[in-house]
Structures are given as C-alpha cells and as structure tokens.
Design a protein around this nucleic acid. Structure first.
Length: 433
RNA sequence: GGAGAGGUGGCUGAGUGGUUUAAGGCGCACGCCUGGAAAGCGUGAGUGGGCUUAUACCCCACCGGGGGUUCGAAUCCCCCCCUCUCCGCCA
C-alpha cells in the first residue's frame, strides 16, 4: 500500500510514477485526496467531541462522588447528546476511511527510478545473457515428447485426475522433481545463507492482502473450505507462491535492527487458478495450475534493499549456471511489472525444444509496499519504527526448469544427461528411454 | 467436534463501572551518588493517528478482534479468534 502521507505531500510525483505503469491508476489519486481531506475534517471534529465527552464524564463522576445527584443527572443529558453526535460522526469517519483505503489497497507500487519506461514485455531491457544456446546435431525434441518417451510425466492421467493444467509425475520424473527441489534448497541454505522454512500451503485472507495478492487478484486464487460448511468457503486460500505465507511470517511485529537482514528459503507447491486467462492452453508443462517452486524471501533495511535484490538475482542465477542452462536476465519495464514490485528482474531459460525463452524466476524488491500492508516494522538505530524492504525471488520455479533441463541436455538417442551437481540427488547420471 | 481455564504494557502481575488518562515488581535508558561499579534515590520510556516547522506541546484511539449497554467500559452483555488442559476423531 502506498503511504498516504506520500500521496498527500507529493501527489504529482505519485501520479507521475503510477502513470508509467500505463494502467491509468494515476487518475484515482484525486479521489483518494478528496476522501482523505474529508476524512481528516471528520476526524478532527469527532476527536474534539470525544475530548469534551471524556472531560464531562469525569466531572459527572466527581459530582456523584460528592452526592450532587441532581447536577450529575443534568450533565448526563448534555453528554448524551454529545454521544449521539459522536456515534453519527464516527460512522461517517469509518466509512470515509474504508472508501479511501479500498482505493489505496488497489493501487500498485511505484516503480523505482531505475526501471525502464515501457508498456509491454517487448520493451523489457535484457541486462545480460549467460552461456550460449546448446547446438544439437539433430532436431531437438520438445519436453512433451521427451516426457512421454521417458515416462516422466503422464499428462493424460494428470488431466483425468484434476483437469487440464495438472500434472502427474511418474517414476524418474517424480524423482527428478524431488531432486531439483532438494538440490536448490540445499544450495541456498549452504552457500547463500538462507534459513529454510516450510510454511502452510493454505493461508488466511490477511496474508493475501499483505503481499498484495488481494483484493485486486482475488479471482486468481483457489479458495478452500472446511468440511461441509459452505459459510467457511474462502476463509483459507491455496498459496499462489510461498511468498504469501513466508513474507508474512513477521507481520505485525517490530523487529530489532540486529535481526535484519532476514533471509528465508522455502519450497512450496504453487496453485494458480488464473481465472480469466485464455485457458491453460499451452500443451505440456509451460503453464499449469499447480507447480513447485523454491522461493527466496528477504526482509532488509531500506538502504540495503537494492544491493540485496542484485544478490538475490545472483543466487537464482547460480542454480541455472550450475545446471548448465542458457539464460538471460531481463529487467521488467514499468508497464510489465507486478502489482507490489518497485523493481523486478526476470530470469528466462532458453528452451531448445520450444525455440523460445521461459521465465523461471522473478526477483522483486517491493520496498515497503508489503511491509506497510502487513504492519511489519523494525526499530532503527535512532529508535524509530520504520518499514523494511521486502524482497521475493524464485530460486527457482520448477516445471519450466524441468522442461528446459530435458530439452537442453537431451541426446540424439532420446536419453537425457543429468548435470553433475544433480546426480547425487537423483541417483543416476542419465535418463534412458 | 465437545467440556473447562485463560488472553492486560519488553516480561511478570494487580485491577469485576468513575483520583487506573493500567498499581506493584523485574528488566531497560538517562541522571544523581561513587575512584569505578553495585545498592540506593530521581526521571523517563509503548503503538497508531490528528494538529504542528517539530521526533516539542496538546488531543484521540488502543487491555486478543468486532459489536452492544452506559454520562463513563480493561471491568457488564453478545459474536468471533487464539492459547492451554481433558475427551472424541484422526495421519
């Protein structure tokens, strides 16, 4: 959520930054300002009345102590009237506040000044490229064909169980998925200084609001219900990413400065309904309703936010490099960035069988946008409570990593060579049809 | 799911309608004292918001959350959440 004080004091700046996203949100600032002004007028008035009531009630107490009951009764009538005005005015105040905050909760974060201006993904600058596309001396197969030949994923039966967009991993496929998860977790814990956590896969409403998923993207979440009780529908949501629970771990806390930086790594399955999207569409594993992901979360001092973002991208790149995969780092332009983010790097893998790039990681600094929503603060050296920066990054998403791994390391005979670091985890150096 | 007991400031722990605009204790910060320290004494200290040049005053709100009763609610009433104990169910 944007800081209302920033909106008040630097409305033009806020409008200008919002406009760079190209969604027209800057037009809502006038309404926010108007509601905010009205709100503060009502607030001053109602607080003044409350001060009067508090004083008068105290006097009544004193009068009754002195047994001046007639006088006390007279004052009661007077105070009751003040009370009625407070009730009415307070209701109005609450409504104004709700309306103001409803808009504020739907406004995206302001893009950082270093982010390239642009409207679509085509305008995302490529920051760097690592490796070169693998040159197969034969026509590379797509992952769908490889998965079927190697019996790694049973697409038909996955769909039979849960519909399109759900995968049934089988045999070495299931083992490869598990090996990748464990490999990535271990690397981030052992070499990158992250603390492993294993969060709930269902979260409460306030966690979804905290990370910026709700209220705007409510239709993309799967809602769960308890038992047969219809009224409990929507009280818990399947996590769209481990970010939802993990970033909220310290919500509503005031951390000591020496607790920062906090660095967590978590595996979770990710559930995405993507309602409104043009179906799952793509054949195979590129776009699915459930996938696995190893997620990195950092909570850091604002002055460290952007250095930590660069480091996080490096942590994710390390995974791809160690698996011998060709990738590029792009910086999302203002029009392509996610709702909560101030700056985002995407990591895209080259998939020979697809002949295209696949996003496997998105690393963002959300600055204080989420911290404000979840009331997460830390006490700085001067003893002031400040909102920390919260960063999230995939390190990395599976499914697409799985796809790229197969397509990159496939051999002419249809086998797939497993990259060296993964062999101990998987228990083989090659998958053979 | 059922029964019972609880949820108060950094911690502990009083408080069942009005000098509690939360006692006392511990811990904390600063000061006095001391050669230095401890003890002792004194002062201060929570969160959010409004007003404001101001992190100065002043004001409002906050005793798990939300409603209600009342001139006045930590205290009384209702709903919900969480924790603990026991039972049931269950991996």
């Amino acid at each position: 959520m944007l800081d209302i004080k920033l909106v008040r004091d630097r409305a033009d700046h806020v409008r200008e930054r919002l406009a760079t996203r190209g969604a027209g949100d800057e037009t809502k600032i006038d309404e926010v300002l108007a509601l905010d002004a009205e709100l503060r007028t009502a607030l001053s008035e109602v607080e003044g009345l409350k001060a009067r009531r508090n004083a008068a009630s105290k006097e009544i107490g004193a009068l009754m102590g002195q047994k001046k009951l007639t006088e006390a009764e007279a004052r009661k009538g007077e105070v009751r009237e003040i009370g009625d005005r407070i009730t009415a005015l307070d209701r109005q105040r609450a409504e104004l506040e709700a309306r103001r905050d409803e808009i504020l909760l739907q406004l995206p974060n302001l893009p950082h000044a270093s982010v390239a201006l642009g409207r679509t993904a085509e305008e995302n600058p490529v920051i760097r490229t690592w490796g070169t596309p693998v040159q197969h001396p034969f026509k590379p197969k797509s992952h769908v064909e490889l998965c079927e030949k190697l019996r790694l994923v049973d697409f038909a039966r996955g769909a039979k169980l849960s519909g399109s967009g759900f995968l049934l991993y089988t045999g070495w496929g299931a083992r490869l998925e598990r090996a990748l998860i464990q490999y990535m977790l271990d690397l981030h814990v052992r070499e990158h200084g992250f603390t492993e956590v294993s969060p709930p896969y269902l979260v409460a409403e306030h966690c979804m609001v905290g990370v910026g998923q709700f209220p705007k993207f409510r239709d993309q979440a799967y809602a769960a219900r308890e038992g047969l009780d219809d009224s409990s529908l929507g009280r818990l949501y399947l996590v769209p990413t481990a970010e939802a629970p993990v970033a909220n771990i310290h919500r509503e806390e005031i951390l000591a400065a020496d607790q920062l930086p906090v660095r967590y790594v978590a595996y979770s399955p990710c559930f995405r309904a993507e309602a409104g999207a043009a179906g799952v569409g793509t054949r195979g594993m590129i776009r699915v309703h459930q996938f696995d992901k190893v997620e990195l979360i950092k909570i850091v001092k604002p002055e460290d936010g952007y250095a930590e973002l660069e480091a996080m991208v490096g942590n994710a790149e390390r995974i791809l490099q160690s698996l011998g995969l060709h990738y590029r780092v792009i910086n999302l332009c203002t029009g392509d960035m996610g709702f909560a983010s101030a700056k985002t790097y995407d990591l895209e893998l080259w998939a020979p069988g697809q002949g295209g790039w696949l996003e496997v990681s998105s690393c963002s600094n959300c600055e204080d946008f989420q911290a404000r929503r979840m009331q997460l603060r830390y006490k700085d050296a001067e003893g002031h409570n400040r909102f920390p920066h919260i960063l999230n990054g995939s390190g990395t998403a599976l499914a697409r990593l799985f796809v790229t791994l197969l397509e990159t390391h496939q051999q002419e005979d249809g086998s797939v060579v497993i990259p060296e670091p993964l062999r101990a985890y998987l228990g083989t150096d090659r998958l053979v049809p």
